[in-house]
């Protein structure tokens, strides 16, 4: 049986629906990401699960218990906020101990759990600091510890990394995932950043305008986009209209076609992999090139529209200058028709 069951959940603000007919199940210990553009309803959905917003319809079950109408205090759910939401008047220790004190645990128990929490997020030596004396990454780790010591049934993370700079974001991302796996903690993570979603999650629920449009593993979402929205949101898919696809690839299709940039080959530069089935050569002109580190991204003009092509950056002589004519071939095995 699933650990979390959400059935037919719906929420309106005034008369505008925020989300509707949300259905999903989560297994114990799973790391789920709600991914979607801003305004798609993912944060509100998270707040409804936390009990911070009410729902208009549907039910939320955790471990068989219906928590739909329980107040936030009694759901056994912890949440980490984008703004950290640390209590400015309390030290690191007091912040982490706050929830335990509310539960009226013995002071020995509180001390023990706070110490564990501090060790888990590696904040030893910062126990007596106030939030304003900590960096952004440290603050978010305090917030994480404050949630973890509550031993919640579900951990909710509402864009916890969005206010941090890139390097700290990557470190904390890994740390969160490690702790989550170690504790086998059922986690729902909200983000609009596809890289975070793809690297951290067991499963991704992709949301758009108040609905889950696709759910699946990172691999599934990335390679098998369910529709044009998913294809345009995940990766850097080339999205071709049906007539473009017919003309360019000779495909017999009435649907849009999604092509990943890395599944297009520049046949004048790389040998064609004979195990795959490639399209006829398409001639194109280099419009621009961008070095993304391990990948070079070309924008190519063809007779039937623009194509983005990613090439592994193996040596600098491959960097082709603007205006060069090249031959492209598309790996037809990786071309997806989408609605």
């Amino acid at each position: 049986m699933s650990y979390v069951e959400v059935t037919n959940l719906a929420k309106r603000f005034d008369s505008t629906p925020v989300f509707k007919e949300i259905n999903f199940t989560i297994n114990k210990g799973e790391f789920i990401t709600l991914l979607g553009p801003s305004g798609c309803g993912k944060s509100t959905l998270l707040r409804c699960i936390a009990g911070l917003n009410s729902v208009d319809n549907g039910s939320i079950l955790v471990d068989g218990e219906d928590i739909t109408s329980l107040p936030a205090q009694r759901r056994g759910i912890a949440m980490v906020f984008q703004s950290y939401a640390l209590f400015p008047n309390m030290t690191v220790t007091d912040n982490i101990a706050f929830g335990l004190k509310m539960q009226k645990l013995s002071s020995d128990e509180i001390q023990r759990r706070v110490r564990e929490g501090i060790e888990m997020v590696e904040l030893n030596g910062r126990e007596d600091h106030y939030p304003h004396q900590l960096s952004g990454g440290q603050r978010q780790r305090v917030a994480l510890a404050r949630s973890l010591v509550m031993q919640p049934r579900i951990l909710l993370l509402d864009e916890p990394l969005s206010a941090l700079d890139a390097k700290i974001r990557k470190n904390l991302r890994e740390q969160i995932r490690l702790i989550q796996q170690e504790l086998n903690l059922t986690t729902i993570f909200v983000t609009h950043d596809q890289e975070e979603a793809l690297t951290m999650s067991d499963r991704i629920f992709l949301m758009n305008s108040g609905q889950i449009v696709q759910s699946g593993s990172a691999e599934e979402i990335y390679t098998e986009p369910a529709d044009a929205f998913v294809a345009s949101f995940i990766g850097n898919y080339n999205l071709l209209q049906a007539e473009q696809a017919r003309a360019m690839l000779g495909l017999d299709t009435q649907l849009k076609v999604a092509i990943r940039p890395e599944s297009i080959l520049i046949s004048s530069l790389s040998p064609v992999d004979t195990r795959s089935h490639y399209s006829q050569p398409i001639s194109g002109t280099v419009k621009s090139s961008m070095l993304l580190g391990n990948v070079i991204r070309y924008r190519m003009d063809t007779d039937n529209g623009e194509l983005v092509v990613d090439l592994l950056n193996r040596s600098s002589e491959r960097l082709v200058s603007r205006g060069t004519q090249l031959e492209l071939q598309v790996n037809m095995d990786e071309v997806r028709e989408v609605a």
Partner: peptide, 20 residues
């Protein structure tokens, strides 16, 4: 956010007001 955090950690609105 502070009130939400306090609520989720088990505090009532009154406790959150007094303590936070």
């Amino acid at each position: 956010d502070l009130m939400d955090a306090a609520h989720l950690l088990g505090a009532s609105t009154w406790q959150a007001f007094l303590l936070v």
